Simulated scan of single mutants.
Amino acid sequence: METRMEGEEEGKQEVWSWGAGTDGQLATGSLQDELLPQLLSSSLFQHPISFLSCGGAHVIALLHGGKVLTWGRGASGQLGHGDLLSCSLPKPVEFFQDFVVICVSAGWNHSGFVSDKGCLFTCGDGSFGQLGHGDLKSQCTPLIVSYFVSRRVNMIACGMRHSLALLEGPSGDQVYGFGSAKRGQLGIPYDKARYMNTPQCTRGLEDNNVMCISANGDHTAALSIKGEVFMFGGTRHGVLSDPQKTSMLKKATQDAEESNKIVMERVPGLDGVKILQVAAGAEHSALVKEDGEVMTWGWGEHGQLGLGGTCDQAMPQFVRLSQRNSKQYTTTKAYCGSGFTFVIRRHGPTSPC
């Protein structure tokens, strides 16, 4: 799902959550869905949050100073607390007490962490080799990926059952993949193997100076320093579609059955609106407008749209967070997981970390 390095601006913050909460992923302390945005207590976070990564049903918070909190579903060890327990409130990952973490990523049931020394650690479900340890075992405590001990990892991106690591290379940054490979999400032909339990160099990106990677579901994206975007993996939801080859579907219900017929369309209702950020969950999306307002659309069964109900929405709808004028906030960021949403709003002076 999403991945990011530390370095966001610091300031007073509000953290809001809503949607699916039966695994504790909303950090409200209860195990229930929330149909409306819930303002979380500021005491849950010792320091301002640099970045959130939302997975299948767990969340990783990277704090200023490089410390890490996790909460939500822990049945596969993805929280990194040394057990298989879920957690309904943010809890420090004690393993990183003496580390400075700069990048985190939450997959469906696994997690990745990169330290300021360039070391990669993973934990959680390893049944497809997505932890990169050379086996199919799960880990409940972060374990260093030994394959990279002599190299420097800059970024980790975790998808549903696969992971990508971005490394510094002598001729430009290189991308390595591990985990499920059957849909081509590692950039490696899957006819040779359905999964890779040790990192393998992704083909076709070696000379492109990749600066950023992202993974979600069973697909992967890479951004080069020249601004070129490379995408590979599953094609069901249109993430890989070529506009010149796109064909219209007669019925929306055929989309899941006829995965080769993919439609790319402009999101309706946003003409003339400047968007600062877009976040994509498993089956819903959120955006932040220039004025700081948040809008959501898509699947709404668990209340992940924050509109007070469980109806799906085909067009972006405004989410009411508080009485405060959204323009009073310096920054607003939205993060989407599988059926749940987080928003962080900051106001007051900011300073670089």
Rank of each mutant, 00 (worst) to 15 (best):
E2K: 04
M5C: 13
E6F: 05
E10I: 14
E10W: 05
Q13R: 09
E14L: 13
E14P: 00
W16I: 05
S17I: 06
Q25R: 12
L26I: 02
A27S: 14
G29I: 10
L31D: 05
Q32T: 13
D33T: 06
L40N: 11
I49Y: 04
A57W: 04
A61C: 12
H64E: 15
K67R: 15
V68T: 08
W71G: 08
G72A: 11
A75F: 04
S76L: 03
G77H: 02
H81D: 07
D83P: 04
L84H: 14
P90A: 10
P92F: 05
V93W: 03
V93L: 06
E94Q: 13
Q97L: 03
V101K: 02
I102K: 15
C103S: 14
W108M: 11
H110A: 04
S111Y: 00
V114G: 09
D116E: 15
K117F: 01
K117R: 12
K117V: 01
G118C: 05
G118V: 03
G118N: 08
L120Y: 01
T122H: 00
C123G: 08
C123T: 08
C123S: 10
G124N: 02
D125H: 13
S127Q: 10
G134Y: 01
L136F: 11
S138L: 05
Q139P: 00
T141L: 11
S146L: 15
S150T: 13
V153L: 12
I156E: 01
R161A: 14
S163R: 06
L164C: 09
A165Y: 03
A165S: 14
L167Q: 07
G172W: 01
G172C: 08
D173Y: 00
D173S: 14
Y176V: 07
F178T: 12
G184D: 12
G184F: 04
Q185W: 01
T202G: 06
T202H: 05
L205K: 10
N208L: 11
N216V: 11
D218W: 06
T220G: 02
A221Q: 08
A221F: 12
L223K: 02
M231Q: 07
T235D: 03
H237T: 05
L240A: 08
T246Q: 15
S247N: 12
T253F: 03
N260D: 14
K261A: 07
I262D: 00
V263L: 07
K274C: 11
Q277R: 10
E283A: 13
E293K: 15
M295L: 13
M295T: 00
W299K: 12
G300H: 05
Q304A: 13
Q304K: 05
L307S: 02
M315S: 14
R320E: 10
Q323L: 08
Q323M: 05
G337I: 09
S338Y: 01
S338E: 08
G339T: 04
F340P: 01
V343S: 07
I344F: 00
H347E: 14
G348T: 10
S351P: 00
P352E: 09
C353V: 10
